[in-house]
Design a protein around this nucleic acid. Structure first.
Lengths: 344, 344
DNA sequence: CTGAAAGCGCTTACAG
DNA sequence: CTGAAAGCGCTTACAG
């Protein structure tokens, strides 16, 4: 591996000139520039990153912390932030929290403090107070997406509003018997603890003067399969069947649609279904949903981080708490319809 | 941020002793050890990683290169390799190839050569010769999983055998009219160029003396939706309907099952369906499949990389080509049945 | 515009 | 067992 010294020798200049010519930050004579470029190309020289970092204090590397990798929301965010960061010359190192408390604490107390990242992006992470402490110890820019980090800038869907909007849509279609399938609090410790989407659902019902029935509020895991099971139970009951179901995620809505089909119920004729996300497969299912525009969230969050990185005043100011509420958008497809044609 | 000097001062020893005490590699008196530990804890000291790297040449960081992030196979591999690597003290930095040729070349020619990773894991990557050249320039251990890297060690499913096994299963159930839904060559430039799974399918048909019909060999994208469209076309034709479909992936099989249902065909009574993967949702669909044990592949590939990293002789030997064929396993569920009850 | 040199913060032979 | 010092490979004030 060729070093800067080799390039300097071959080009017949000092290492300082090589550094300047290659970084393009300082003025270098055209002749020197050309010689350096030629020499660097000939030797296939790339600056050692650790030396660069040690000398400058910059890592050109962002740490991304997420609780899961294998769920749609997370991989979509990852995809988008990664491409934005690469575009701007940053590496992305991934810290996956799943795998138990030991791993989790290792990441916060050992990996992150290695001073290897210039900034941290957290995705739907709800840090404990000890973890928050470790995060702040870093003195690095922090951006949260999909979940608030106390003391830092956050971009997140307004979950209450999303839940209300979904429910209001069903109410506007004449539905009164409206169920909600939401995540169980324990299976998803990462997400906003109080189930905000359900809160929005309850608010909408109350505003419309509709009684909220406990048996229509069910909880399960955030997956197609679990929602399927729960929905089958919910929709199979001939005496207490709702005419509409609001699911806290599109994947849950897929499971609900499948359950309805398997029970011989027609969507939306017999049962209306709405989700939240606008998952890649939602169009395929004809699912009415609250569009979260996840990819845009990822891209914007990455941009917020890049801006913070360029901010000269960050050093003195540090992170400041600010929550940017991401507005939910109703996206109507064919899984919801007026109740008159929908209740049997 | 406290440096090693601060710890040394507080502990009343030299920086050399601090370094030794903290790394645990060299002998240090119990007294000095204790003083250093106390001082480090008090200051919240963590060694600067770039200084460590510059001094030792070790990054404790692995580069993972993958063409997609948002597909099941890739996120499952990522999840598993990440946890294995974290466990062994390695960071994982992610290089996502999707996003066009410019990004791709940037990753191979700019990011990877930064000497920031100790080794590279490629997931279903088929490097061009220029990319291969760049990879070899690194002089770092390389492991391929899910796709062969010429000149390096690779762990990959034996695709031909998998295709043959799936098809043989259908044949053993008396099926003769067997279709195959595979990926289109262009949409998936990453994967083994000749469609090896289909090759296995053709081999099995030939061995059984069954004629391979062109109209039953269709191609599409690797997604549920695309397979759904194609399968609907295939199964909707009343005159040329196959009695069984072998899909190159489980997600394609899901789409095929949905299409069959929507056409009023019963699985497996009217139509048998088999996939390859053993996707997280396959059990839910009752899908008979070729189990790829993806998570095990990820974990074993990561272990192979760790072994190579510990191998003292790598320096002199370099990467050596070796392909470890991962055996396919038939996993029978309820989506396949004997033809006698299956053809109408 | 350019070079000599200090410095980034560690690790590790080398002496003692 | 421990310390002084060299060295890892860059960048960047400081002179000129």
């Amino acid at each position: 591996m060729a070093g800067i010294e080799d390039v300097a020798k071959l080009a017949g200049v000092s290492t300082a000139t090589v550094s300047r010519a290659l970084s393009g930050k300082d003025h270098v004579s055209a002749k020197a520039q050309a010689k350096v470029m030629a020499a660097a190309a000939e030797l296939g020289y790339t600056a050692s990153h650790s030396a660069y970092t040690l000398a400058t204090g910059r890592n050109r590397n962002i740490g991304v912390v997420m609780p899961y990798l294998d769920r749609w929301f997370f991989s979509a965010i990852l995809q988008e932030t990664d491409s934005k960061l690469i575009e701007h010359g940053y590496d992305l190192t991934l810290y996956n929290l799943s795998g138990g408390d030991a791993r989790r604490s290792k990441i916060f107390n050992e990996f992150l403090p290695r001073k290897r990242v210039d900034a941290v992006l957290t995705v739907a992470v709800r840090p404990s107070s000890a973890e928050l402490e470790a995060l702040n110890q870093l003195k690095k820019p922090i951006i949260g997406v999909g979940g608030t980090i106390p003391g830092a800038k956050t971009l997140a869907l307004d979950d209450i509003k999303a839940g209300r909007l979904a429910t209001e849509h069903l109410i506007s279609l004449g539905h009164v018997k409206i169920a909600n399938i939401g995540e169980s609090p324990f299976s998803d410790r990462e997400f906003n603890q109080p189930n905000l989407r359900r809160l929005g659902y309850l608010e909408a019902l109350e505003s419309a003067g509709i009684e909220a029935r406990k048996i229509w509020q069910v909880q399960t895991d955030y997956t197609v399969m679990d929602a399927y099971r729960v929905a089958k139970q919910l929709l199979g009951d001939p005496h207490n069947r709702p005419t509409a179901v609001f699911c806290n995620s599109d994947e849950m809505a897929f499971g609900t649609i499948m359950a309805a089909k398997d029970l011989g119920l027609r969507v939306p004729l017999d049962i209306s279904v709405i989700g939240i996300d606008n998952h890649d497969m939602s169009e395929f299912y004809g699912l009415t949903t609250i569009d979260q525009r996840v990819r845009e969230q990822g891209s914007i969050a990455a941009q917020m981080l890049l801006d913070l990185l360029d901010d000269k005043e960050f050093e003195t100011r540090g992170n400041v708490e600010e929550t940017i509420e991401w507005p939910p958008r109703l996206l109507i497809r064919s899984s919801t319809a007026h109740v008159s044609s929908s209740s049997r």
